[in-house]
Amino acid sequence: MLKRTHFNPSPLPYLLVTPQILITIIFFIWPASQAIFQSLLVEDAFGLKSEFVWLDNFIELFTDEIYFNSFGRTLLFSSLVAFLSLGTALLLAATADRIVRGATTYRTLLIWPYAVAPVVAGALWMFIFDPTLGIVAYMLEALGYDWNHRLNGNQAMALIIFAASWKQISYNFLFFLAGMQAIPKSLTEAAAIDGAGPAWRFWTIVFPLLSPTTFFLLVMNIVYAFFETFGIVHAVTKGGPAGATEILVYKVYNDGFIGLDLGGSAAQSVVLMAIVITLTVIQFRYIERKVEY
């Protein structure tokens, strides 16, 4: 049994945790409870009075086809973002783990996108792909491919997928690289002596041993794609054309701030909150599985 340590009662520990508790209350607990409360109300068109309607907002939400379409779109969006950014990051990390010369420069360059704010990243991609000004759009045109993400919903979706993935690659890269460097060199050397080529070594030794990292990143990427891509969507497509890129988090904003359906928007954010909490719980339950070398 642990022995109880006796300290003189002092206000200091409480003082030290106060800022953290305040931040949690002001920026999480308070808005979250506001959202939950809001989701149970219906406000009239002029915002003069609101009525308590229990779960009507949720019932309406779950019977709304547009909402389900947005849900499906978000699932597609986040799985493609996760797949693309994880895949690219894994490839880059495997390369970085092998090269010796110029490794530092290579790594630094790869980390930069992470320092770019989502809106800025979005603006960057928007300009590059702008149908009239963008260089890539111009090159695609030259190749005979007609690019206009302002009219073509699929192209708009592809563009925000690329932009969102690009920004997340750095984060994934860092974790993958750290994970790879924690794997003892002697394991891949042993496999090389056993007769495995580089690709086979990667798939049979490195990748399985990275699985805790991959799982962690998978959850983090889904959370990212679900919630942190608002800025990108806002800068690139504003959910358009015709709602083709309206993912859940953007719909919250659109319905609440543009459509002024505060109750419905709050109900949507409560659903999102439930999703993120579930993902976090999954994350914490399984992250304990560690590999022992």
Binding site: A190, L209, V291
Partner: peptide
């Protein structure tokens, strides 16, 4: 290494965990 027909025991054994 694979074409040299050798086998090696490492200090940390390097077993595939």
């Amino acid at each position: 290494p694979k074409d040299r027909d050798i086998a090696m025991v490492f200090q940390n054994y390097a077993l595939y965990p």
